[in-house]
Design a protein around this nucleic acid. Sequence first.
DNA 1: AACTAAATAAACTAAATTAGTTTCCTTTGT
DNA 2: ACAAAGGAAACTAATTTAGTTTATTTAGTT
Lengths: 207, 207
Amino acid sequence: MNEQNKSPVRDRIILQCTEIFLQSGFSKISMDEIAVSLGMSKKTIYKYFSNKEELVKTVMETFWNESLSQIDSVMKEDGVDSLLRLIKFLELAGDRASKIHKTYMEDLIKYFPDYWRGFDERRRSMLKTVVGKIMSDGKKEGVIRNEVDEDFFILVFQSVIASIANPEVMAKIPYSLHQVFKNIVEILFMGVLTKEGREKYRGKYLT
Amino acid sequence: MNEQNKSPVRDRIILQCTEIFLQSGFSKISMDEIAVSLGMSKKTIYKYFSNKEELVKTVMETFWNESLSQIDSVMKEDGVDSLLRLIKFLELAGDRASKIHKTYMEDLIKYFPDYWRGFDERRRSMLKTVVGKIMSDGKKEGVIRNEVDEDFFILVFQSVIASIANPEVMAKIPYSLHQVFKNIVEILFMGVLTKEGREKYRGKYLT
DNA sequence: AACTAAATAAACTAAATTAGTTTCCTTTGT
DNA sequence: ACAAAGGAAACTAATTTAGTTTATTTAGTT
């Protein structure tokens, strides 16, 4: 059971299931349907994943690890000031989040609540680490006001992502995620920037 | 069983199910889920509909009848030349079609193939009647070339709607249905219009 | 051409879900 | 107090599903 941990077939299964699960969740998708959509038999799937739960969690972990490595490269990128980094991170996080349909999260919460809680905690702490780092840099650079409360900013940040960067809302808005975030960033930033930061922002990133 | 044929409750059920079914089909949606989403018990639903099949078909019929009456008012509207009428009809048909998700049609084809065939036939004949009427008017008015084959035009018309005016495609296009149809209409019309019609079109409906 | 490894198709079983019914209980208006 | 109507939930028979097994097909190797 679950012999290999790396193989092109296994990767194909994960890739296809990521697409299916993000779109439609997993509770309403049968293993037969997955097999048919992959053009393979269930036997092959069960060779790489011992049960549906393992498949679902692997898909989620893979998606999360991809996100992490994307975030990592944004954080390591140099020649980027903290303001641009914050924008890049916001867009990245938003882009990822906008792919996850409501049904998928509902399924996770319903069927694997413990796993979900752990996942949610990881996400929360990542956000705190990343945004915290960017903000303290921004304060040092003098583009973010010293009085700005980091936790509060993260909270606002988080709720914006949760309420707007999901497919259900995006489908109703006639703007691209990029456009939406440009506007949000503009609104959000005006409150946290120093005079200097505000000028920098207007000059470099706006429109 | 299925006592009333008109009641606000019955209408609410149809309205809600239309939304659910168009979005997600009906095979993956249980009667329990429908009841919960309506905030009522299954008992009430089964008071108005003797089984799921009847509910599904009623929803489809209602949607179809609404479409018909909208089309009817476009056809009866006066002070409208045949060119504008064709545009209006195309937009209407496209708008309706763009709400029907693939899963819904797949479910209909799979579970009620006879009903689907009948429905498809009705749709086809409606299209022939309506577009036929508009085109013969257009020819009389001298805005559509006499050589244009009606059946061929309907065929193109139909395949455009089928391939573009569905939610799956629309979600990937960063334009509104209105914009998409404006462009299609422009491309499509240039081939069927007389010199006179082309001038009229450019002057009145473009951009 | 025979052999082997691996995958598919399809049948199968036990567990879970679902359509449709029924029972009991609460609400609402009379 | 009463009756009608609907909600919550239990229930059953039928269907669907996860996971397994068996037989058949395919592709590569010798």
